[in-house]
Simulated assay, not measured.
Amino acid sequence: MKKWFLVILVIINTVFVSCITNKDVVYLQDHGDGTDGIPVLRELPKPYKVQVNDLLSINVKALDEELTRIFNPVQTTSTAGGNNGQSQASLYFNGFTVDDHGKIKFPILGEITVLGYTTTEIEEIVKKELLKQYFKETAELFVTVRLPGVTYTVTGEVNGTGIYTIFEDRVNIIDALANAGDISLTGNRKDILIVRQYPDGQRIHHIDLTDIKAMNSPYYYIQPNDIILVKPLKRKVIGAGQTVMQNFATIMSILAGMTSIYVLTKSL
């Protein structure tokens, strides 16, 4: 009988320890290590540098609009300010894709190397080449180069896996996850994986979103084409419940099963 009692105690302890607590689900907690409230970012994220397969929107303006017509795609109603999905599709056909050699093909100017440059630097490169090859030096040109928002992928223990685009220049990882329906209750917020593209290949980074120090991480702000992977908590893997009541139901089921086995063995 003592053995059965010890087994029951072990089961109860294991299941209740497996409950998901506030420490597992609350974002940006201050763990009392001297940080008073939200920490000030040490530095803003560095400007994004264009990678292979990025899609660029380039617009050229001048006093004489006829001279710039060839450089700018026709603006449809959806592109000018309607449905975001249609705008994205339009840009896919009318924008400039960075090829495997880090170049784009621009009207009149031909191939331009953009790999490793920021959008501000590309604006200066395009403007310089336009003045050199097409416009007069005295022409008043205005060139804008933009990325079509931040496109990223979310998968794993979230409420809405998929590929998303947020039409902002800077997007932090919490905004990105909220846009995907947030992490489910059984998702591991303490070890989020970010797969990021670099010129020499992909790398995997880790960030703990339950710690307020995450705001100082270089991976707090996501980049275009990032993949965010959310792993399940270990307690989900072992099949434990998410709440005390669920765990209580699990205990009762186990005890009922053990009682049946005990009665059967005694009657034999």
Rank of each mutant, 00 (worst) to 15 (best):
R146K: 15
V145S: 05
Y198N: 13
K23I: 05
S57V: 12
I11K: 05
G85H: 11
K231S: 13
L67Q: 09
T144M: 08
I228L: 11
K213Q: 14
V7I: 02
V25I: 13
M245R: 14
I192P: 02
V25W: 00
N172P: 08
P199C: 14
E124L: 08
Y48A: 13
T118C: 02
L185F: 07
L41V: 08
I251R: 04
V7N: 01
V60D: 07
R146N: 15
K2C: 06
F135Y: 05
E65S: 15
L141G: 07
D64G: 01
P39A: 05
F167Q: 15
D64L: 04
E65P: 12
T97C: 09
G257M: 09
K132W: 01
Y221G: 02
Y117S: 15
A240E: 04
N94A: 13
F5E: 09
Q51C: 11
V15P: 01
T14W: 05
Q197K: 13
N22S: 12
F167E: 14
N83M: 06
A256S: 15
N159L: 12
N83Q: 09
L67M: 10
T35S: 09
V74Y: 15
V145K: 03
V10F: 15
A180R: 01
G116N: 05
N83P: 02
N22H: 03
F142N: 15
T161M: 06
D191F: 00
D211E: 13
V40Y: 11
N172T: 07
G110D: 07
V263I: 08
T151H: 05
G102P: 03
P148D: 02
L9T: 14
M258I: 08
D208W: 00
I112Y: 00
D100F: 08
Y220W: 12
N53G: 06
K266H: 10
V126F: 01
F16H: 10
G187C: 06
L6D: 05
N83E: 11
L41I: 08
V74Q: 14
N84S: 13
Q246K: 12
V74F: 15
K266R: 12
D64Q: 04
A180W: 00
G160W: 00
R170L: 15
I207C: 06
R203F: 02
P39Q: 04
T265L: 11
D182G: 01
R170A: 13
D99L: 03
N216R: 14
G81S: 11
T161W: 00
V171D: 06
T186A: 12
A214D: 04
G241M: 04
Q202C: 06
L264Y: 09
P39H: 02
T77H: 10
K103S: 06
I238E: 15
H206I: 09
S184F: 01
I238T: 15
L55Y: 05
N59W: 00
